[in-house]
Amino acid sequence: MRSLVAQITDKDGVRIQRFNLDQQGISIGRSWNSDIIIQDRFVDAEHLHLSLSDDGKLLLEDLSSTNGSQLNGRSLRATQKNYALESDVRLGDTLIRFFDADVSVAPAALRSKWFVLAERFSSWPSLLMLTIVAAFVHTIVNELRTTEPVQLDVLLVSAAGVLALILVWSLVLGFIAKLIRGESNARALWVLACLGVIVANVFTIAILVLRFNLQDQVVGQWVSVLCFAAFAVWLLVGTFSYISSMSAKRKWLVSLLVVISAYGLIRSDDLLREPHQSWRSFTKTEAATLPPALLLRQGVSLDEYQNAAEDLFDAKPE
């Protein structure tokens, strides 16, 4: 006697039934007396018979059903056929697979939090809302940073631009994901792109306000670099989660390496420059200028200011 599991897929979904099989066998059909009941109008009351041979093999037999059955796509006749575990049996609109209950199942797959994130937006209304918010945030932030009067067509172009970007991103990466991971995850990539747009724009404004209040070009530049590097790593790790099957550790490592080398490449020109090449006859100070409402730091008195400015004279020549 063997303990087996039947996985039955019909129009209502998948159901699992465990049963014991001996030489006497079990009946599969629409009849209420069947051992495995199939509720499918194209299935006969007594449709299939599964039994165990003396030497322990599984034998499957079609009981001259009206619409017949298929084993792995081949028609099953009245004769008994050997059944190999996990093969597809089709009867009517129903698909059955048998598994050995004693064979241990695969270890649980790791459930990445990236998929939890994507599934928060699994319904169409929430996905649509997220997309609208992303386009809106991007357009507003873009508009705040221009020095031109607000114009409707510019706003529309900006919104359309970011939507096109999200679409292309999802399609291209979705295609790559299909190749690498076997599933496109286009919807998850879409969610990631929308979130990325929102985060990047919020960062931009937050950094602008911070740098305006810091008024220190060197520190300000590092704030920008570190914030956007962190953002880029986050985005890359998310992307790798959807398009590849890398382990969490590997994802972070690769993302970090990509971001660091990209930054190094961008800055290499500056870093390799001789001191006389970077000499300028103009000043370099924090460019960020914002309205009075966004000034959060306390001002100093003129005396304090001048005392601090005296240090400029004592600077060592570079």
């Binding site: 008024q215 000499w279 300028r280 006859s281 000043t283 100093v300």
Partner: peptide
């Protein structure tokens, strides 16, 4: 930017101090 002409051999780079007045 400077109103007088100079170059690396003759001048250091500008160092700046910025702050807001009370």
């Amino acid at each position: 930017s400077a109103n007088n002409s100079s170059n690396y051999d003759n001048s250091t780079s500008y160092r700046c101090h910025v702050d807001f007045l009370e």
